[in-house]
């Protein structure tokens, strides 16, 4: 928003750039030292040795909020008549417990708390999408320019962590690691490998098995790898698209009073619809994570 060149594409690009803190590349004048990227190009050049400060900040803040509230309720949880907060927390936990029981038949104490964390955390992160797109970035711009002495145009700020593929991939890869760990732990390394190589095409004789092994492995490996990718891209894609539409609607505000009012109505309508997406995506992510854990526990 702020800055001299306020074009539509500049506005959109600014909104889609994370606040990146990282190691400047060799070609840069500050090569080797760490600092905030001033442009999207700089952020890109930083490569892997960089971190999205806004994504980390909001995800940790919201996760801590979730854990704080739930811990508060859990600490004073009584078997007697529950209070308001305890009632709310119990309602969510029972909901998660029921859906986990519905799709997970094994015995693993990590699955239900993982599902609870995933659902509430993703829901909170997704809900950040409903905050009008300019509010928090503007605040960040002011803070950045007055406190840190940065050019407000260079203070990038994305408030929805789930529109950052790093966040969604971070979660899905952790789940992927868990499924592989439990898959090997439950079925043994042999059983795990057999599952990767002996199906879907099954054969009786050894030569046929060996013959079918590459095909089976290819198919199963693609299936295995596609799980975390689809899991994270689904969440990322939905939220990214939702945010993009909010940004496009926000562009209309600067196009005269008539379009501004129209944009207000549109923003409200999209926000209402987006509540559904926000809940649904959090629930789908949680359910699929539980299903993947179930698949890791039982041979199919």
């Amino acid at each position: 928003m702020a800055g001299e060149a306020l074009t539509a594409s500049g506005y959109i690009k600014h909104h889609l750039q994370n606040l990146t803190y990282g190691k400047f590349p060799e070609s840069h004048e500050q090569a080797g030292s760490w600092g905030f990227a001033h442009t999207a190009q700089e952020a890109k050049e930083m490569g892997f040795m960089a971190i999205h400060v806004d994504t980390m900040f909001f995800s940790i803040l919201l996760g801590a909020l979730f854990l704080f509230i739930f811990r508060k309720a859990a600490k004073s949880a009584t078997e007697g008549v529950p209070g308001g907060l305890q009632n709310f927390v119990e309602w969510i936990i029972e909901f998660i417990d029921n859906s986990v029981r519905g799709s997970f038949t094994g015995k693993n104490p990590i699955v239900a708390p993982m599902a609870l964390t995933l659902f509430v955390w993703i829901l909170l992160m997704n809900l950040m999408d409903l905050v009008p797109v300019d509010w928090l970035p503007q605040v960040a711009g002011i803070v950045g320019s007055t406190v840190l002495g940065m050019d407000p145009h260079h203070v990038f700020f994305r408030v929805v962590p789930t529109t950052d593929p790093n966040a969604t991939f971070g979660m899905s890869l952790a789940i992927f690691a868990l499924t592989i760990f439990y898959g090997i732990k439950i079925k043994g390394i042999g059983g795990f490998m057999a599952e990767l190589t002996m199906q879907p095409f099954e054969a009786k004789s050894i030569p046929m098995k060996v013959l079918l092994l590459p095909i089976n492995f290819f198919l199963e490996f693609v299936g295995l790898i596609s799980k975390p990718i689809s899991l994270s891209l689904r969440l990322f894609g939905n939220l990214y698209a939702g945010e993009m539409i909010f940004i496009l609607i926000a562009l209309l505000f600067s196009s005269g009073i008539g379009l501004g009012i129209f944009a207000g109505v549109l923003q409200w309508a999209w926000a209402v619809f987006h509540i559904l997406i926000v809940m649904l995506q959090a629930f789908i992510f949680m359910t699929l994570a539980v299903v993947y854990m179930e698949m890791a526990h039982h041979s199919h």
């Binding site: 994370n18 990146t20 990282g22 952020a43 890109k44 930083m46 490569g47 892997f48 040795m49 960089a50 971190i51 999205h52 994504t55 980390m56 995800s59 940790i60 996760g63 979730f66 854990l67 739930f70 811990r71 859990a74 936990i93 104490p109 990590i110 239900a112 708390p113 993982m114 609870l116 964390t117 955390w121 962590p161 950052d164 593929p165 790093n166 966040a167 991939f169 971070g170 979660m171 890869l173 952790a174």
Partner: peptide, 25 residues
Amino acid sequence: NINLTLIGQSITFALFVWFCMKYIW
């Protein structure tokens, strides 16, 4: 861009799950 945030998020997630499993559930 895919960068260190990925690992940071994984660690954060693992810590949150651990805390939830230990102190909330």
